[in-house]
Design a protein around this nucleic acid. Sequence first.
RNA 1: UCCCCAGUAGCUCAGUAGGCAGAGCAGGUGGCUGUUAACCACCGGGUCCGCGGUUCGAGUCCGUGCUGGGGAGCCA
Length: 460
Amino acid sequence: MERTKIFKLLECDSPLAQVLIKGWVRTRRDSKGFSFIEVNDGSSLKNIQVVVDEKLPHYTDIKKLTTGSAIAVSGSLVESKGGGQRWEIQAGDLQIIHLAPEDFPLQKKRHSDEFLRTISHLRPRTNKYGAAFRIRSEMAFGIHKFFRERGFRYLHSPILTGSDCEGAGELFQVTTLDLSNPPQKEGRADYEQDFFGKEANLTVSGQLSAEMFALALGDVYTFGPTFRAENSNTRRHAAEFWMVEPEMAFCDLDGNMDLGEALIRELTTYAMDVCTDDLELFARWVDKKLMATLENIAQSDYIRLPYREAVDILSQSGKNFEYPVGFGNDLQTEHERFLTEEHFKKPVIVFDYPKSIKPFYMRVNGDEQTVAAMDVLVPRIGEIIGGSQREERLEVLEARMDEMKMDKTPLWWYLDARRYGSVPHSGFGLGFERFLMMITGIRNIRDVIPFPRTPQNIEF
RNA sequence: UCCCCAGUAGCUCAGUAGGCAGAGCAGGUGGCUGUUAACCACCGGGUCCGCGGUUCGAGUCCGUGCUGGGGAGCCA
């Protein structure tokens, strides 16, 4: 007999004579002559109640079932005689697949997030983390669905990259050299003898690759892991995280903002549609205002605010900010939060940032002062998307790189794209984990990543 | 990297003025009951984060290190 997943049974609208489930014991309550067992198989937040009669063989063993044990139950799906649930399984047979010893660390009550992080291998067996990672899975699918419906192609950009490029943050170096005794040349490690014959790193962004493919396939997106070796100790940063990076040919900054807004709006709607039960847990236990926040994000029109106007609003706010406001200063976390949480109380897209604070590849605007950059800010998270129209004019791009004293040699291929059929194109990066924090209300990025990597922590 | 806070039973925490180490949950035993984080009784359970100092006496005060959390920077 084939096993049925518990979420299927809970959706039934009539009793079933013969079913088989397999899962883990969440709790057991004994009664006179029988025992109630709550079983969860991870297919949904909800458990199913199994009723075991004392007449079953090895009932004495069953009465010793501990939280965390794995069991298989066959029996009939019947309407529950008790309140609290519609269906329950009257057990005809119960096999103990594995008995968890009494030191199983997860209890029936709530644990702290900090403690659960120390047992990341077991925390998906809790209600909250089971829900979080089911949502993560659904959202990953939702991203592919969103882009596929718009004719985007999915690009696998490389994880291993040559050095010198991208310039988006500190790099993790990858080497096969013997670190205790590396070959030397002119006083430093000789990377000509390394695996690739030059320095190699983990990627910090798939953007440059995506640009090449946008100029071939039209609209593309990457969705994969990225790595930053920054010593960032905050609840919003991880050394390994996933990024969604669409890149569109024949698209300017307005089209870019349209896509960013549509992506966040539609994914939020999708989450509310397909993760209803799991989201309800977060709305109940993690963030009471979650549903109102999500409705706001899914339904309101996002404010589009030129950087210069953002500066005006901030200077006239009467707020005493820690960091100065003025053209040429980047917006700090406190400024972003003021705009999206206090002033507008909805998502805000700030665009046309000063050239001086943005990277070389962003397109220089007609005023020569600003670039066609945009950041999407959402309440409670801050910056969730950063993007730009890319500089497609070879001379302007080269001049900019010279101005920033960059070595153009290793990026010859990137410049080549501006030599042959260069077109206006745009794209952005969405931090997948930050998006999940927004959707679930979870406050720490470590709690939306199965096995998070942060400075000084690579356990599991 | 900088600033702030915390570390006591398996977990969540209390510990008053520097004076005998505590509760709830979890676990064990027994009881009761179509139960719902079941309930009742009893029992077992401690390197009070490490090191050093002050003191007759330190979980408590001081120094230092480690770990965790929050905020900032960097960013997604």
